Computed example of a mutant assay.
Amino acid sequence: MKEIIIATKNPGKAKEFVQMFEPLGYEVKTLLDFPELEDVEETGTTFEENAKLKAETISNILNKIVLSDDSGLMIDALDGRPGVYSARYAGEQKNDSDNMDKVLEELKTVPSEDRTARFCCTLAVAIPEKESLTFTGACEGVIMEEKKGTYGFGYDPIFYVVEEQKAMAELPPETKNKISHRAKAIQQLKMQIQDIF
Rank of each mutant, 00 (worst) to 15 (best):
F17S: 05
Y26M: 06
K13A: 12
Q19S: 14
E38T: 11
T30S: 08
T43M: 10
E16D: 13
E41F: 14
E38F: 00
T43R: 11
V18E: 14
V40D: 10
L32M: 12
K15G: 08
G44A: 11
E36H: 12
K15D: 13
M20H: 00
L37Q: 10
E38Y: 03
G44K: 13
L32H: 01
L24R: 10
E16S: 04
V40A: 14
L32P: 00
G44Q: 13
K29I: 02
L37F: 14
E41Y: 14
K13G: 03
G44V: 05
G25A: 01
K15C: 04
T30P: 04
P35R: 14
G44N: 08
F34Y: 15
G12S: 09
Q19M: 15
E38P: 00
F17A: 06
M20W: 01
V28W: 07
F21Y: 11
F17R: 05
F17D: 03
A14R: 05
P23L: 09
E41V: 15
V18W: 01
L31S: 10
K13I: 06
P35F: 03
F17P: 02
D33C: 08
G12K: 09
Y26S: 05
L24S: 10
F17G: 09
G44R: 09
E22M: 07
G25N: 12
K29C: 00
F34D: 12
F17T: 04
P23W: 12
G25I: 03
T45Y: 01
E16T: 02
E41T: 15
E42N: 10
F17C: 03
E41S: 15
E36Y: 06
Q19A: 15
L24Q: 09
E38Q: 15
V28G: 01
A14D: 04
V40C: 11
V18T: 10
V18Q: 12
M20D: 01
A14C: 00
V28N: 10
K29T: 02
M20E: 00
E22I: 00
E22H: 05
V18H: 10
E27P: 02
D39A: 14
L37Y: 09
E22Y: 06
K29H: 04
K29Q: 12
F17N: 03
P35V: 07
F17L: 04
F34M: 02
M20L: 06
A14V: 07
